[in-house]
Every structure is written in C-alpha cells, then in structure tokens.
Design a binder for these strands. Structure first.
Length: 200
DNA sequence: AGTACGATTGACT
DNA sequence: GTCAATCGTACTG
C-alpha cells in the first residue's frame, strides 16, 4: 500500500485537503512496531485566520508550517500534549491541517501500551485515538517528527498517509474546537457517525 | 527579564 | 459540568 505522493498535498488547497484526508490512513513505522489509523476528524488553519499559529509571522515554533506541502508540523500544547498537523499550501505560506482523531487499524496492542489503556474494552479502544493529543501518544509521534516529510522514500519518512480505500466518505462540517479567535469559521470536518471523533 | 496563555486531557463534583 | 496540571513561546517593557 503506497504513500500518498507529494502531488496530492501540492495539488489541493488547505480546506480541500482537510476533506480529502478524511478516510485516508495515517501510518507510523516506528522501532517499536507499526501503528495506523483512519483519519476521521480534521481542522484547517489558514493564513489570514487569527487562530492559525502562522497568522502573525514565521517563528521558531511555527517554522514547519512554512515548509512544503506534505511536511509534518508537531507542536507542544498546554505543556503536556503534542498535536500533529499536515502542512499544506505553497512553501513559505503558513497553512496546515490538524489531525484530530483516528480510527485505529493496526498496532492496537502497542497503542494500548503507549496510552495505558486496554484496547479490548469498548472505552479503552475509543480512548486510544479520540483526540489530537491522544492520537499523537498512541502513534508514538514526538517533537522529533516536526519538519519530517510525509512523502520521502523509506526511512526518511516513517510517518506517511495511505490513500482512501473507499471513494465516498460522508462528512460533517462544523466550527473548530478549543479556540477563541476565528471560532465561528466552519473549518472542522469529521466522518459522520464515527465513534472515534473527539466531540461529535 | 518577566509574564500571560494555549488547536488538551483526565480526574473529580 | 468544572477545574487543575505544566511549559515553551511570543509578546511586553
């Protein structure tokens, strides 16, 4: 199963990619093992959007957002958790798609160890990846993955995304979670009825 | 140099 | 539903 190529990330704008990424599978081939999950919730962060980290200027924290489309942007939030974004838009334009929830498909046992949850129970399974901070832990993503490419060959990109298996994904569009500025913008997308969505 | 605060989560009432 | 935990960053002075 192939990685989505760099053209996929380059050929669509950020809002379109936020929708197209739903139903695709995020994969991390780590030393501990491989984990993967279907992307079921995303949010778009655009230039000119006050909630976007890159709204004001390029800084040490948001620098990855200005990289080429198909780059990873990982940042610390609230001093505890990390969030994972797919960088979008042309190079030197600071836009990205936040991955907010996954439906686990591979490496559930490893995810359970990382999250200290039992994936064989209903609540334990849902707790693995039903939020942006949770999925980063379950997938074994860290600050070291900031700036990595999703599209390079082999070990150069242990984190990548596989294309959708099914063509049609029924989705819902709403406002974004946890922000104060730009709170009315309809930039959040999720798979309708999916139980791993953080806040249905 | 000092400080306010955030794209969250989990524990507790 | 409410609330504390914890720290790097970005902005102020």
């Amino acid at each position: 199963m192939a990685k989505l190529p760099v053209d996929f990330y380059q050929d669509h704008d950020t809002l379109t990619l936020s929708r197209l990424l739903l139903g695709c599978e995020l994969v991390h081939e780590s030393a501990e093992g491989t984990t993967a999950g279907i992307i079921v919730e995303t949010e778009a962060y655009l230039t000119g959007d006050p909630a976007c980290h890159a709204y004001r200027r390029k800084t040490a924290r948001n620098a990855a957002m200005f990289g080429p489309a198909g780059t990873l942007y990982v940042y610390l939030i609230y001093g505890f958790y990390y969030c994972l974004n797919v960088v979008t838009g042309p190079e030197d334009v600071g836009e990205a798609v936040l991955i907010r929830a996954l439906e686990p498909t591979e490496g559930l046992e490893l995810m359970g160890e990382r999250r200290h949850l039992d994936p064989t129970t209903k609540t334990g399974l849902r707790g693995l990846t039903s939020g942006p901070g949770k999925l980063v832990i379950a997938m074994g993503i860290s600050r070291d993955h900031n700036f990595l490419s999703l599209t390079k060959a082999g070990k150069a990109s242990p984190v990548f995304i596989r294309p959708r298996m099914q063509e049609n994904v029924e989705m819902v569009t709403t406002t974004r979670i946890g922000i104060t500025q730009g709170a009315d913008l309809p930039y959040r997308f999720y798979v309708k009825g999916n139980r791993f969505v953080s806040k249905p």
